[in-house]
Computed example of a mutant assay.
Amino acid sequence: MKKVNRRGLTLSLVLSVTAGYVDAIGFIDTGGLFVSFMSGNSTQAGVEVLEHGITAAFMPLSLVLAFVLGVTAGALVGDDDRRRVRAVAGSAAAVAGSAALAVFLPEEPWRFWILAFAMGAVNTLYLAEGRARVAITYATGTLVSLGLALAALMTGRSRSAWQRPLILWGSLAGGAVVGAAAHRLGSAISLLIAAGVLAIAALALVLRRDGRGASAT
Rank of each mutant, 00 (worst) to 15 (best):
A202W: 01
G147T: 12
D210C: 13
Q163M: 10
G70D: 00
A24D: 11
T18D: 09
M59W: 00
Y138C: 07
F112L: 14
D29K: 06
G26E: 10
N41K: 02
G211C: 06
V95A: 07
E48P: 00
G8I: 02
V4F: 14
V95Q: 02
R159Q: 08
G20H: 10
P60I: 01
L11G: 04
S145E: 15
A87F: 03
A216R: 05
M1E: 11
S187H: 05
R131M: 14
V47S: 09
P165K: 07
S12E: 14
S62G: 14
S98R: 02
L146P: 11
E107D: 04
V77Q: 10
A93E: 09
L61Y: 05
A57H: 09
L203N: 12
S190V: 11
I28M: 06
L148C: 04
F112T: 14
S171V: 09
V17R: 08
R86V: 12
V197I: 12
V14I: 08
G211S: 07
Q44D: 06
S42D: 12
S39M: 12
A194H: 04
R6C: 05
T137E: 15
I193V: 14
G8W: 00
L13G: 00
K2P: 10
L125K: 15
A121E: 06
A89Y: 08
V17S: 05
K2H: 03
L115Q: 02
V14P: 07
S39C: 11
S42M: 15
L203D: 11
F27E: 12
F37P: 07
S42T: 15
A87T: 07
A128Q: 00
S12Q: 13
A100D: 01
S16G: 06
S16I: 04
I136F: 07
P109Y: 03
L101T: 05
S190W: 09
E129N: 05
E107P: 05
R131P: 10
A188M: 14
G130T: 06
V4W: 14
A173F: 15
A57C: 08
S12D: 13
G40A: 13
H183N: 00
T72P: 10
R133A: 13
R131C: 13
R83A: 15
A214F: 01
A135E: 04
G53Q: 02
R212T: 01
N123T: 09
A135M: 04
G120R: 01
V197R: 02
V49L: 04
A118R: 03
A118C: 08
A216K: 00
L33H: 15
I200W: 11
L153Q: 08
H183E: 05
A161N: 11
A216S: 09
Y126M: 03
R83K: 07
V206F: 14
W110V: 06
V71R: 03
L172D: 02
R86G: 13
S190M: 12
V178S: 12
V178I: 11
G74T: 11
D80P: 09
A152L: 13
G174W: 02
S91Y: 04
P165Y: 06
G90F: 04
G196P: 11
R7T: 07
V17I: 08
A57T: 11
E107R: 05
I28W: 08
G70V: 01
A102D: 03
K3M: 01
T217G: 00
I25Y: 12
V178R: 10
R157P: 14
L13C: 05
D210F: 00
L63K: 01
A182Q: 00
P165H: 03
V206E: 15
L125N: 15
